[in-house]
Simulated scan of single mutants.
Amino acid sequence: MTFTKTTEQSSKHEHLEKMSVQELLSNINQEDKTVPFAIEKALPEIESLVTEIVAKMKLGGRLFYIGAGTSGRIGILDASECPPTFGVPFDLVIGIIAGGDTAIRSAVENAEDNATQAWIDLKAFNVNENDIVVGIAASGTTPYVTGGLLACNENNITTGSISCNAESPLSQTAKFPIEVVVGPEFVTGSSRMKAGTAQKLVLNMISTATMIQLGKVKGNKMVDMQLSNSKLVDRGVKMIMSEIPVSYEQAADLLKKHGSVRNAVDYFTAQ
């Protein structure tokens, strides 16, 4: 099969500068609606990757995301939200971006073109065979990401990928590839749009499904979430009240003493 970068093909929409604000928003929205359907086609591949991640984590492994530009930033976003949401250690899910932390806010020239740097960045975390590394690249051709996965393969580290072109070099490299083919962007080549949305949705699915499989959710509640602000404390109190017969004040006291919804409920039910 011939590799074609549909993410770089010309937009289906012409003369964007002549559109009204309403037309721009409507057309962007119409394009965005196609993303979930593209993801639906990739559900079997997403399932395979999640199953492998869960197995690795049960053995003490970690999940790494590597990417450049928008893809790297989205990976870091998902990784950074796992500790407060699910109460896991900050180093269980790790996002790495080409160019380092500076690249989170500002583009770092030529960072994504370095095919050897990702392995150097991963080794700084002592990546090993218990871990799994997922490369994220809309094009499926980013040297930083592809090079990182090649090095992982050579060192017996399990690899996955998320890209938005069919049969890309990245997919050929990863052991567990996911392809979400969203087609040309509204603004030609602007993969921060549909491709970025697709990557974010897939990462939501991966991390959430993984954490649920690892027991970090009870019922439909984030019982291990970090209580880092008053909104979350209030949410935690109400979660406790929905699980055990206590008043708001009693639930708040239990939460303060035991540090998490899970611990508070477990303590109460054990009495």
Rank of each mutant, 00 (worst) to 15 (best):
40 E>G: 03
40 E>C: 05
40 E>L: 12
41 K>L: 13
41 K>A: 14
42 A>R: 05
42 A>F: 03
43 L>F: 14
45 E>S: 15
45 E>H: 09
46 I>H: 06
48 S>I: 05
49 L>C: 12
51 T>V: 13
52 E>Y: 06
52 E>H: 13
53 I>A: 03
54 V>R: 09
54 V>P: 12
55 A>N: 15
55 A>V: 09
56 K>P: 12
57 M>H: 10
58 K>Y: 11
59 L>D: 15
59 L>C: 11
60 G>F: 09
60 G>P: 09
60 G>E: 12
60 G>D: 10
60 G>K: 12
63 L>R: 12
63 L>G: 11
64 F>V: 05
66 I>M: 04
68 A>D: 06
68 A>I: 04
69 G>H: 08
69 G>R: 05
69 G>W: 12
70 T>Y: 07
70 T>Q: 14
71 S>H: 08
71 S>Y: 08
71 S>C: 11
72 G>W: 05
74 I>G: 10
75 G>R: 09
76 I>D: 01
76 I>A: 06
77 L>R: 13
79 A>S: 07
80 S>C: 06
81 E>V: 02
81 E>A: 04
81 E>C: 00
83 P>M: 01
84 P>M: 02
86 F>G: 08
87 G>A: 05
87 G>E: 05
87 G>V: 00
88 V>Q: 00
89 P>H: 00
90 F>L: 01
90 F>K: 13
91 D>C: 11
92 L>I: 07
94 I>Q: 01
94 I>D: 01
95 G>K: 00
95 G>Y: 01
96 I>D: 04
96 I>N: 00
97 I>K: 06
97 I>N: 10
97 I>A: 01
98 A>G: 08
98 A>K: 02
100 G>P: 13
100 G>K: 09
100 G>R: 06
100 G>A: 12
100 G>Q: 05
100 G>H: 05
101 D>F: 10
101 D>Q: 15
102 T>K: 15
103 A>K: 10
103 A>E: 08
106 S>Y: 15
107 A>H: 14
107 A>N: 11
108 V>S: 15
108 V>C: 12
109 E>Q: 12
109 E>K: 13
109 E>V: 02
110 N>H: 14
110 N>C: 03
111 A>R: 04
112 E>Y: 05
112 E>W: 06
113 D>V: 00
114 N>V: 08
115 A>V: 09
115 A>K: 13
117 Q>G: 03
117 Q>P: 04
118 A>M: 06
